[in-house]
């Protein structure tokens, strides 16, 4: 009787072992590797200007079992358009969303209010916030470095900066710029506007024509375009210093329409955003996520590689 029990017990033990090992084998071998889906959301009418960030995100994504897609919401839709897109992506099953905020404060509030801190990362535009995951250049240092460049390469003493009054993600940059310029004895006149209007299109004409200021600083696309247009039309030599990542800004630089261009390293930020999500243990070093170039050095080997995306 005892022998029978032993035999049956042994048989059942082997059977159980085989079943368990088969299950492990099956899961381990045939189980699909789960692909982590990451959606990048930018506020732009096209994705043309985002090739660098796409390249960086894709390069990092290749190292992991992840898939990256880039989505754009129209500029007219503003922050709400981005929020709608974040929501729809998360609802559709996307694991993580990386957003380049149109309006940092609104996007940040949405993330915090909806407890999405673990699933949504802010990249490129914004202010450092301990509650949020972000890959941002040091805006204050960027402003400070741009100010040092202006002080070093120009004789300007009275600059004007036109910016949106609620553009909070530029706040630290302006602080860095203002403080460092002041240290160099340069006055920065900061002009805020509420909504960009037709009047704003002409404002740089007035600034240049009036001779009130001996230099212009622009931090957004509309400002740089208008400032360059005004400078061309008046045939002024007034120096313009800009923050912009668009290829046209490089063109402006090459054409001497602007004197220096500060730009953020979109490729590296895209790369680090994916790396942060896929390998949270990696320390994300956000030093040097921006560059300041002028016409003299824009074709230097090291600047070419970051300033010009590999066009296909």
């Amino acid at each position: 009787m005892l022998k029978n029990k032993l035999f049956i017990g042994s048989f059942l033990a082997i059977l159980l072992l085989i079943v368990v090992e088969f299950l492990i084998y099956n899961t381990y071998i045939f189980g699909d590797k789960r692909i982590v889906n990451i959606s990048f959301i930018v506020c732009d009418d096209t994705l043309t200007n985002w090739e660098s960030m796409k390249s960086g995100a894709a390069a990092c994504s290749n190292d992991y079992d992840s898939s990256v897609i880039f989505l754009n919401s129209s500029k007219d839709a503003g922050a709400q358009g981005q929020i709608d897109l974040i929501k729809s992506q998360l609802d559709a099953g996307t694991d993580y969303v990386v957003v380049v905020p149109y309006d940092y404060e609104e996007i940040a509030n949405y993330i915090i209010d909806n407890d999405l801190e673990k699933r949504v990362v802010i990249v490129r535009n914004g202010a450092k916030n301990k509650k949020l995951k972000s890959v941002l250049a040091d805006e204050k240092l960027l402003g400070s470095d741009l100010a040092e460049y202006i002080a070093e390469h120009s004789d300007c003493k009275n600059l004007v900066l036109l910016t949106h009054q609620n553009d909070l993600d530029k706040e630290q940059l302006i602080v860095g710029l203002d403080e460092t310029l002041a240290d160099s004895g340069i006055n920065l006149n900061i002009k805020y506007y509420e909504d960009y209007s037709k009047e704003n299109d002409l404002i740089f004409y007035n600034y240049i024509a009036s001779g009130m200021y001996d230099g212009i600083v622009t931090l957004d696309e509309k400002s740089i375009d208008n400032a360059v247009a005004a400078k061309d039309n008046i045939s002024s030599e007034i120096p313009i210093y800009s923050l912009d990542n668009r290829p046209i800004a490089v063109y402006y630089l090459e054409k001497n329409q602007i004197n220096a261009l500060a730009f953020k390293d979109d490729y590296t930020m895209g790369f680090l955003a994916v790396d942060m999500l896929m390998n949270p243990k990696n320390h994300t070093n956000t030093d040097g996520l921006y560059y300041i170039v002028d016409k003299e050095n824009m074709y230097l080997e090291q600047n070419q590689k970051v300033l010009f995306p590999f066009a296909k």
């Binding site: 960086g56 390069a59 990092c60 390293d265 490729y267 590296t268 790369f271 680090l272």
Partner: peptide, 11 residues
């Protein structure tokens, strides 16, 4: 290099 820019950026 597939990560040419990342190499230039030092990451």
């Amino acid at each position: 290099h597939p990560k040419q820019k990342a190499i230039y950026a030092g990451i």
